[in-house]
């Protein structure tokens, strides 16, 4: 599974970090970091992260 975050849209709300902590995290400056190619077993939580992003900046490419 391929995950793409539109960093022009991202406003560091961090909701994705709650939904999928294995894939998304905040760095020391409070900016988003993420795993671009997570295991397919994490699909449910990545979909949840995409749903709860207030800016709808997360896209899953199969």
């Amino acid at each position: 599974m391929k995950v793409v975050v539109d960093m022009n849209k991202c406003q560091d709300h961090g909701q994705c970090v709650f939904a999928a902590p294995d894939v998304f995290s905040m760095d020391d400056d409070g900016h988003l970091a993420y795993v671009p190619d997570p295991a397919d077993a994490l699909r449910d939580e990545v979909e949840e992260a995409a749903d709860v992003c207030p800016l709808q900046a997360i896209r899953i490419e199969d």
Partner: peptide, 12 residues
């Protein structure tokens, strides 16, 4: 700002 919003998340 962002730092205090992050501190709120710690209580979640």
């Amino acid at each position: 700002g962002h730092a205090v919003a992050t501190s709120a998340a710690r209580y979640r």
